[in-house]
Amino acid sequence: MNKARIPFIPTIIVALAVLVMIGLGFWQFQRRDEKAQALALAASNPGKPPVAFPKLPPVTADILFRPSSLHCLRVVGWQVEAGRAADGSTGYRHIAQCNTGAEGPGALVAVGVTQRPDAKPNWTGGQVTGWISQEPDHRALISRIGGKAMPLRPMLIARAAPAGLKPSAPPSAADVPNNHLAYAVQWFFFAGVAIIIYILALRRRNAPKAP
């Protein structure tokens, strides 16, 4: 009768991987509390005095949703995202990719909302006032739950819209999800799956060989 054997090195590797995943889960719990505090701060920002529009990410909680302004020299591109207008209606948010100078990263401006994704906003740039927000989040889920995602670029939500568009809804902390609890659960789930897969692999390895 063969005695079940547990390989030392593979077991150590799996154990370390599981411990890392569990650690990332608890880290996401900590991030959840930090995000809640940041959103509580941001919730009061729309009524504060204007600040300079940030040139580079990340958008910190102390300026998120603060009033601001920028000068769009010219629009170099457009992107369309689902959005909500100030009157509560839903539609398509048109975001201008602006050139703001001879050098630099430029800026994103959510100029307004329409009912048609193929609408062509009649806006070529100029001075814009509004609130500081962030670009729509299209980062991969695994990079977000692992904390390796690139920070979102700042975006100005314009207070007024050009002709043919509705003004976008002002930013609200309620629109920013706090997904860190879900991320923590996912890391714990990955750890559990890794343990189950390894146990099944050991059972298969130690199963009696057919004669």
Rank of each mutant, 00 (worst) to 15 (best):
V20L: 12
V20M: 06
M21W: 05
M21N: 03
I22Y: 09
I22F: 13
G23E: 10
L24F: 15
L24K: 01
G25T: 10
W27Q: 05
Q28A: 05
Q28N: 13
R31C: 02
E34G: 00
E34N: 06
E34W: 00
A36V: 00
A36G: 02
A36Y: 03
A38M: 09
L41C: 00
L41F: 02
A43P: 00
S44A: 14
N45W: 02
N45V: 04
P46H: 06
G47I: 01
K48I: 02
P49L: 11
P49E: 12
P49F: 08
P50M: 09
V51K: 06
V51R: 06
V51S: 07
F53D: 05
P54M: 08
P54S: 07
P54T: 10
K55T: 14
K55S: 15
K55E: 15
K55W: 00
L56N: 12
P57I: 09
V59K: 00
T60A: 08
D62K: 04
D62I: 08
I63L: 05
F65Y: 14
P67A: 12
S68T: 13
S69E: 14
L70I: 06
L70T: 07
C72I: 11
L73G: 11
R74I: 07
V75S: 08
V75M: 10
V76E: 15
Q79M: 13
E81G: 01
G83W: 04
R84I: 15
A85S: 15
A85T: 12
S89P: 05
S89Y: 05
G91W: 09
Y92M: 13
R93P: 02
H94G: 07
H94W: 03
I95K: 02
A96K: 11
A96I: 12
N99A: 14
N99L: 14
T100S: 08
T100N: 05
G101F: 11
G101V: 04
A102T: 11
A102K: 15
A102I: 09
A102S: 14
E103H: 12
E103C: 00
G104R: 08
G104W: 04
G104D: 07
G104N: 08
P105E: 14
L108H: 09
A110G: 08
V111E: 01
V113R: 09
T114V: 04
T114Q: 06
P117S: 14
A119K: 06
K120Y: 01
K120G: 01
K120L: 05
N122G: 07
N122I: 01
N122T: 05
W123Q: 05
T124A: 15
G125H: 04
T129S: 12
G130P: 07
G130D: 03
W131M: 06
W131G: 02
S133K: 02
S133W: 05
S133A: 11
E135Y: 02
R139H: 02
R139I: 01
A140D: 12
A140F: 02
S143Q: 09
R144N: 06
R144A: 04
I145C: 01
I145W: 13
K148A: 06
A149H: 00
M150L: 05
M150F: 02
M150E: 14
P151L: 09
L152W: 00
R153L: 09
M155P: 08
L156A: 08
I157L: 14
I157E: 05
A158P: 04
A158S: 13
A160R: 13
A160V: 13
P162V: 07
P162R: 13
A163M: 03
L165A: 12
K166S: 15
K166L: 15
